Amino acid sequence: MTDAVTFIGLGTMGQPMVRNLARSVPVAVYDAAPEAIAVAARNEGVTALASLNDGVGASVVVLMLPNSKVVERVLGDPGDPESFAGRLRPGTLVIDMGSSAPRVTQQLAERLREREVGMVDAPVSGGPRKAATAELTIMAGGPVDAYEQALPLLRAMGTSVTHVGPAGSAHALKALNNLLSAIGLVGALEVLSAGAKFGLDPRTMLDVINRSTGRNQSTEVKIGPEVLDGRFQVGFSLPLTVKDITTALDLSTSLDLSPEVSQACVRFCQAALADLDGENPDQSEIARYMAKTTGVDLTRR
């Protein structure tokens, strides 16, 4: 186990992850929002960093940031001695646990390797609820030695940790997983809407589907409480969903594939995001947009 960790990014996922990580190792935290730092620092074993650059001395730096652009902005150019990345000591390990673009991760890992700084991409699945209970599913990419160094820390935050390949591979798998999840959600909502318009009760349909071959994570976990009950609080935002599934689609098309189902799902989710009111709609609010396009409101039944 490492002796010090800097954790950057204290959003919906970062806060509970820090709380669990601090039970195993001292953690120093930073976020662009001072109030987020203050909340995290209330936990035992967590200290606040006055500035980002105060975190460069840690043996491990964990990033829980929204996307590659933010990662690049925070780390800066590894070749610039004035940047955060340029000031990291040789032997430091960077763990990017956000949903970054796999190609960008590959390039960043190579730049850091030139400075003898290791990198593991370790995105997570499970949402805020699993983050709170340290039951996240974590996929990790990078050299085996860097993965083994990161493993005790990752196990403090998740119950399933899998090394999936070289740098960038975990970010690729995370994006593809989220695309498959979105396909399952959109497909299930479309099927329930068709059944409801025919005259079937959506709750009865959902109950039968969840004991049949059509079930998926959305039918089992999301749609009942979040759509039919009208809570719309999956805990993962639609903007982040669109970002991740677009990343996955871009990866597929860059490999000269023609993923027609994926393309249709991404187009639908993009249209839903453009149509919905509010700055940060929940992923489950895709159902609100589908109600507009089909005339079938599953929530009201």
Rank of each mutant, 00 (worst) to 15 (best):
I138P: 06
E116H: 14
S181Y: 02
D201R: 14
D207K: 14
T105W: 08
L154H: 04
R155K: 14
G165A: 09
E190M: 05
T162I: 08
T137G: 15
A167Y: 02
D121R: 11
V104S: 14
S100T: 11
K130H: 13
G187H: 05
T159N: 14
G127R: 03
R111M: 14
G168C: 08
G142Q: 02
M119S: 07
K174V: 05
A101S: 12
V186K: 02
M157H: 04
L200R: 02
R129T: 11
E114F: 01
N178T: 04
R115Q: 10
Q107K: 15
F198G: 11
F84E: 02
L154A: 08
A140M: 07
V191T: 13
L179Q: 07
T137H: 03
S160I: 09
V120C: 09
A175W: 01
L200T: 07
G126S: 12
R87K: 13
G195H: 09
G118V: 00
G98Y: 08
R111K: 15
G184R: 04
G86M: 07
A109T: 05
R111D: 14
V186S: 12
V120D: 05
V120W: 05
G187V: 03
K174Y: 10
R103W: 06
T159P: 01
P202S: 11
T133D: 15
L200P: 06
G126H: 12
G127D: 02
N178K: 02
G142N: 06
A188R: 07
G98I: 01
P152C: 06
G168P: 09
A196Q: 12
V208C: 09
E82W: 00
T92H: 05
G168N: 08
G158M: 05
D145W: 00
L185T: 07
Q149W: 02
R155V: 01
S160Y: 15
V117L: 10
S160T: 15
T92E: 02
A140D: 09
V208Y: 08
M205G: 11
G158T: 03
L108T: 09
L200Q: 06
G184A: 12
L112V: 04
M97D: 06
A182Q: 07
L151T: 02
L88C: 13
Q149D: 04
K130R: 15
P128M: 03
L192P: 03
M139D: 07
R113Q: 10
Y147D: 01
L189V: 02
A109V: 01
L180N: 08
A150V: 00
G118P: 07
P128W: 07
A196E: 13
A131M: 04
V164S: 10
A194C: 11
V164I: 12
Q107I: 10
A172W: 00
P143G: 14
L180E: 07
T204P: 00
I95N: 11
V124L: 11
E190W: 00
L185Y: 03
E82T: 13
M205W: 03
G118S: 15
S181G: 14
P102C: 05
E110N: 04
Q107N: 11
L173T: 02
A132C: 00
G141T: 03
L173N: 02
A182R: 00
P143Q: 13
A101K: 08
A101I: 03
D207M: 06
L185D: 06
A85T: 02
S100A: 15
N178G: 11
L206F: 06
A109Q: 01
E116F: 04
